[in-house]
Design a protein around this nucleic acid. Sequence first.
RNA 1: GCUCAGAUGGUGGAACUGGUAGACACGCAGGACUUAAAAUCCUGUUCCCGUAAACGGAGUGCGGGUUCGAUUCCCGCUCUGAGUACCA
Length: 1087
Amino acid sequence: MDYQFKDIEQKWQQFWADHQTFKAEDNSTKPKYYVLDMFPYPSGAGLHVGHPLGYIASDIFARYKRLKGFNVLHPMGYDSFGLPAEQYAIQTGQHPAITTETNIATYRRQLDQIGFSFDWSREVRTSSPDYYKWTQWIFMQLFNSWYNKAIEKAEPISVLVKHFEEHGSTGINAVCDEEILSFNADEWKAMSHDEQQAELLKYRLTYLRESTVNWCPALGTVLANDEVKDGFSERGGYPVEQKKMMQWSMRIAAYAERLLQGLDTIDWPEPLKEMQRNWIGKSTGASVRFPIENQESRVKSQEYIEVFTTRVDTIFGVTFVVLAPEHELVKELTTPEQKGAIEAYITQTKKKSELDRMADTKTVSGAFTGSYVLNPLNGEKVQIWIADYVLAGYGTGAVMAVPSGDQRDYLFAKHFNLPIVPIMDIQQIETEADPTKDGRYINSDFINGLFYNEAVKSVVAKLEEIGAGKAKVNFRMRDAIFGRQRYWGEPVPVYFKDGLPYLIEESELPLVLPEVDKYLPTESGEPPLGRAENWLYKQAPSKSPPEGETSSSHMAGSYRETADPVYYEQLKDFSRDNRNQPTEAENILWQLLRNEQTGFKIRRQHAIGQYIADFVSLQKGLIIELDGHHHKLNKEADDARTEVLNHLGFDVIRFINDEVLSNPQKVANDIKQKLQVIPDRKKVSPAGGDLEGAYAYELSTMPGWAGSSWYWYRYMDAHNDHEFASKKAVEYWKDVDLYIGGSEHATGHLLYSRFWNKFMKDMSLVVEEEPFKKLINQGMIQGRSNFVYRLVDEEGRGTNTFVSHGLIKEYKTSPLHVDVNIVDNDILNIQRFKEWREEYADAEFVLEGGKYICGHEVEKMSKSKFNVVNPDDLIARYGADTLRMYEMFLGPLEQSKPWNTNGIEGVFKFLRKFWRLFHNEQWVFTVSNAEPSKAELKSLHKIIRKVEEDVERFSFNTSVSSFMIAVNELTDLKCNNKSILQDMVIVLSSYAPHMCEELWTLLGNEAGTLSYATYPKFNGTYLIEDEFAYPISINGKTKMNLSISLSLDASATEAVVLANADVLRYLDGKSPKKVIVVKGRIVNMVV
RNA sequence: GCUCAGAUGGUGGAACUGGUAGACACGCAGGACUUAAAAUCCUGUUCCCGUAAACGGAGUGCGGGUUCGAUUCCCGCUCUGAGUACCA
């Protein structure tokens, strides 16, 4: 039979799913290999052709590693909390869980049809309570920890408490807030409980603090720095403003040094590491205190101004000090005479938006406070200025200005006529600052005549001696804000008592996201969770449940206890199917329930915890379920579900689909009656019980990066109810061996993940310091737009005539985007163009060579540019194997490139040609058992080695070319030798798995065994040549080729060359000055 | 501005430690099969000169260097893309 990719691909995808072919073993004697793709967010648009690029590469690698005898973990799941689903919910009122579910279904369908070898039994979703239970749990561990700088490691907070109890605050070297109390052990014990908790909060790795945040009013949330671009939100492009807010933060800065050092131990692309290094922004220097002159008279709060400098050696060149306008001492330092000028300057700075301030880096501006500081080393009096080139958020918000060495200081000094003192003998400062470190110091007191290294040492020593400063390392990286004022995220497992945060009990996890009526902030500006009814924490009567007994109050836990796990899974599957396809009965009934026809507001497809109820009245606490045939089989699951919902204070009534279909009005009336008789839902807390003495929960949810900061561990043990992953699983799988994804995660996900990983390592929860050993960035796939050129008439109006691209110079035209899906190799399908839009139905064309050629341009892939290519269409036309190979054939994985289907035919032809090797002229499967010829073995072993080399260095595009060469050779050899072809099938199977599985079984092998076959062993003896066609070159220019036996050594080869008649003709009588012979490579003669 | 990556035919790209530049594929041109088209197959295809072949010359962004020999190594520059931005 001819190559029927559709049947073949469907057949094998089904087979893999049915037989769980790619399920990784947890107990294996094989070495482990963990291949991971970056967690996708299931967006509504589904996959475009750029997404699978990385997945295909990792899949080829995973399949290859299986053939090489590894136990491969290659999982997939969804980072399913996030803004887009919530935005959609706000616009449509549909629960984000439903949107997310639908999107995931689309993703899954698209992923499946590309034939990936994912172990789907380990799928995770960050928005599932089973999963976020452990995200919340890790949050709790962070809350219960502090960072001990003495041992460069996080420790339980109990260690700190013990130290406080025994020694007070002395001897503690912690990463903590700036304002901490000093106390002895007795003073600590004398503190009230609240005072102690408030103090501990300053040490916890996750803590509350007032911070300036990027507040986006349009999105109603706080954005991370990397989600803001030029003062606008990256998603949606809404304006972002600075706002002070009480926020959960994570002390990632505690790990700055380890995050930096760790980069040297991992195999990541250099640009990516560089981005992280810049983001961490380590600078080594010194902090120096400049005493404020005459400070008794005005300044009381502080005696000095502290600055950070990386050039402490230039301290004798300081001629003024500059503070950020926001600096806390500005007010106190301003003299009455300068008050006007300073206030005017501050007002002017505030008015400038972030954007203006960035655009305008040329203008020099500032104001004099009227006060002075003294240079701590020579007592010189220098002026204190304020200027907006000094940033409040970096260092101490103050700089010592050295105009001779720093260009900004130089411009400032010139502009305000401040002194400029040279400090190096070789400094050239006539027109600009000279930051040189070479030369010897001048005008510099005790370091005069010294070189840089000596000078730094002796200045730091002197400063330490007089207590005016010390060597210091500064980081640019700030603590990460960990909270957003949104609905669709993990609830923070914290409640507030007397204004202080406390964790809920571990046994009460997961804290399930409550229902809200709208996904918007409350009228008083609180986050959407503020809308949740009775969203309050009631402490369990006994502080923690007895050993071995879990709280029965939370939904997922209780559900699993009341229901058999099998039913639990069935129910999950059922709700999944059901949600995607509302039944006819549901649709009919909805028409009778909507718009309060029953007298009560009914919601459709509303999420109650992790379940979606068909219909619900929140007021009455009544859930209406419609049961199809499915339920008859799963009555027990339904009962269990009812039990859980009852437990949550809901009544449940059920109808059978047939009842609704035969008499919908009766069903509606039954519902109406029921609603009238039952009382309004009694107020219960999500944790059960009444709400007497309950506390407010935290209302913000976790940010997008929470769930993705540890997910690779969940895949190791995805269904564990007792731990985030078992110790055994973590110790076996350890870390990710290969991680593939885009570089857009450089300073977000990849930094936070490393941070959580290091923390988890400190807590002995995991074993590796770095989570991702090897990382590869796949390049972006850009769009390739096509254009048609509309003829413009004399009045400048567009006509309905279109000019082919080659002729546009002769006409006046304007370009218009045209859908790339109706263009083939830049040739417009005129018929489909006319059908594309009504207005083009009568379009006329100026053709060249009978064809309409379109113009093209590389742009971002986007709907508005009509250049989005969906993998579905290509798979329908060529099949998944062709798509897989073509995406690889496009070029190096890491390189960005425009998508362009121009070459896809060639890949398809190649696969067909491969198929044909196994078939005769009549497409009947025929292979021979003859001994393979030397030439056949040579072709085979060339490709065996080539694919090994290419895959190991992630050069997938060159393998595809080599496959083509091999198949071309075997076709020329008319090869249909079984042993050769069988090995070819194994080698090709990671690239084109469906076709290879089919051929594998046709060759008589057991179905499904190909994935775990053994990669053929390379044998170099088949490649040994006895002759080589040497290129003979004269002065480096190749003139001819000459075949010479490889058994000859260099001098014998030279003799053969010099005796050759053609060579002599080229030499034209001259004798070569020198002859270079590289055996098996080249002969070069110098004349 | 700084940091990083990159630049090879009409197009995507190959050339791994310096050793025949343009593999493989697309496109294009010519041919075979066909009444015709599609599909398929065959041949050619870096550019320039020459009627064709042999042959000759130029050629990997630009300028220079090292070398018997440079797409590859070194120096300077141009352009493109990405990241970052008054970081003291």
